[in-house]
Amino acid sequence: MSILDIFSRHPRRDISAHADGELAPDRRDALEAHVTGCERCHTELDELLAVRSALRDLPQVAAPRSFTLTPAMAEREPAPVASRTTPSFVAMRIAGAGFAAVLAVVVMLDAGGIVDDTGGRSSDESSTALFDAAPTNRDTATTDGSGEYGFDAAPEVSDGDIMGGLAGTPPVDDDSILPAIGGGVGGPYGSEDVLDGSEEYPTLDPFGVWQEPAGNTTNLDDGARPNDLDTGDDGQAAAPESGDGTPIALTAEDDGISSLLIIEIGLAAIAALAFGGSFVMRRRAQS
């Protein structure tokens, strides 16, 4: 960037520094050239000089008395000036510590929930229940594609106690909002209608992240969380299948929980930084 580029806009900070004679020679020359051709900056420089002149004309007021120290003053306890801790400062630190503690508890609770959910998912019974539920839901959905879908699907999946903690945000298809109702009532799921890859039911959930390549399905059975979700360029993805070719229901809840966890950890980190920052500020103020 050339020196001229610096002054392509009105250099307010440099105008003020120029009024104080604090600009380096190269910047001063460039500024003077700019001000000569810029009426706005020329006016601003004149006005800032006038403000500066008015402030400098403020008279120095004589001290109303001498501030020399008496021996008693010199032996006095440390003055309040040395103490930078104020009630508001203490309150800020306490609030920061409390906020960090609450976030830490929330994060730990969430972490526990994920472990439980993963364990539940890894059980054969649960997996079976999920896989059993999928055709049922699919059948229901493809039969009429109506509101029955959501309400029918939810109890079956919830009986299997699959990913219960991860429920709450069912996928939304092109039909209606009803799957969301199903997810809200019974937790999971209603998402199984997308697993057959049929034209009637789009495979893309609201987040576009739920599918997993077929090759990863064994990992799911092992209890692993579905990562590396495969989404095509068009937002559509191949429906994941289990080892025997049965479609697997994967939803965005896993990813949603991960995001939540990340956000909470981030907030906890911010709170910790704020707490640490207040401590550092206090130490610096005392120095």
């Binding site: 001290a63 501030f67 020399t68 120290l69 003053m73 010199a74 006095r76 440390p78 003055a79 309040p80 000036v81 040395a82």
Partner: peptide, 10 residues
């Protein structure tokens, strides 16, 4: 001002 001088001395 007085507090400042006392604090400075100390």
């Amino acid at each position: 001002a007085q507090e400042a001088f006392i604090s400075a001395y100390r």
